[in-house]
């Protein structure tokens, strides 16, 4: 910015015309040289910066590279005292061995079902509530919004025990009587995995923000045309916030796929384990066989990484907008 010469410089008055011409040429040359050196300097610093950023990227990505490289190493190699950085042989069968030792397919299926259900339920329930709070005037709306804001502050770890007890003591479920006694309630069932996280207050808040910036005129026009409130919402208003829907969908899916604590608490059977829980359990199984553990880790991590590559912009916008994981 500062390195380009100011175009409107006024030449100082000089004696003869010849002299002035020579001076002008000199100055031009000087200026050009200065500019060249400045831009050269800038190029060098940009080059250095690029190199630096490449180094940082490599350092940041290294754990993932290391995970992958380990997942294809042979067992003797990971136990050897001087393990080569690059695997000498590529043992892809580590993945099949890991799949034989633990049903990662079932784990992945379970996680996918949970993530998909929570995505859909957050989209439907969250957008309905967000729309009502942003666009419809009704009694108690402000109280309701205050309630949503307050719920957003509650950390999951502060309510996890009562939530667990509620699952355990659901009446008439899992052999329970009316008072939730005698059986196991929803413990170790799909209900326990799916119901408590159907909609998060934060997603309602996000939807409210998205709907606030939509034009109310469209809504009114639809009403005047005789559309019902439900139709106005589904056909006119909801399509307006498609990018927002994608953001919430990605956040909800990520939360479902990466969730660990809740499945750890409410499931005990292998068939209901999620991928992250399954990976955590597999660690005991694999023991020191880190090549197998890293093969399992790769399987648990890759779907989210692939999704991130596809929806990078939406992911980043969603997380930056929320600021919280």
């Amino acid at each position: 910015m500062t390195d380009t010469a100011f175009p409107g410089t006024i030449d100082a008055p000089v004696g003869t015309e010849q002299e002035s011409a020579r001076l002008k040429a000199d100055r031009r040359q000087e200026r050009r040289a200065k500019r060249a050196s400045a831009s050269k300097q800038r190029r060098i610093s940009r080059f250095a910066l690029t190199i630096f950023l490449i180094v940082v990227s490599v350092v940041m990505a290294m754990p993932f590279v290391w995970m992958f490289l380990t997942s294809v190493r042979s067992s003797p190699e990971i136990y050897s005292a001087d393990m080569p950085l690059w695997p000498t042989e590529w043992h892809w069968e580590n993945f099949t061995v890991a799949l034989e030792r633990a049903p990662f397919g079932i784990y992945a299926r379970n996680s996918f079902i949970i993530a998909a259900v929570h995505t859909i339920s957050n989209l439907v329930l969250g957008s309905m509530a967000g729309y009502a709070l942003a666009k419809i005037r009704f009694r108690g709306a402000s109280v309701l919004f205050g309630f949503i804001l307050a719920s957003m502050m509650i950390p999951f770890y502060a309510i996890v025990i009562p939530e667990f007890l509620m699952i355990r003591f659901v009446p008439f479920a899992g052999g329970n009587d009316l008072f939730g006694q005698g059986g196991t309630g929803w413990y170790d069932t799909w209900w326990a995995l799916l119901i408590p996280a159907l909609v998060s207050p934060f997603n309602i808040f996000l939807f409210r923000q998205f709907f606030i910036s939509t034009p109310t005129e469209l809504m009114e026009a639809a009403r005047i045309d005789g559309a019902s409130e439900a139709r106005t919402f589904v056909q006119i208003m909801a399509p307006l916030i498609r990018p927002g829907m994608l953001t919430v969908a990605l956040l909800a899916f990520e939360a479902g796929w990466n969730n660990f604590l809740w499945p750890l608490l409410v499931t005990s059977s292998t068939n209901l384990r999620t991928i992250q829980l399954g990976l955590s359990v597999f660690r005991q199984e694999a023991g020191t066989e880190f090549n197998l553990l890293m093969a399992g880790t790769t399987m648990a991590a890759v779907p989210m990484i692939v999704m991130f590559f596809f929806f990078q912009k939406q992911f980043v916008n969603g997380f930056v907008g929320s600021g919280i994981k």
Partner: peptide, 20 residues
């Protein structure tokens, strides 16, 4: 992408990687 990737990846997976 390289810098943001750890944020998207499940913490359990990340713990396994760093364990190693």
């Amino acid at each position: 992408t390289a810098v943001f990737l750890p944020h998207v990846t499940a913490t359990v997976a990340i713990a396994m990687i760093w364990l190693w």
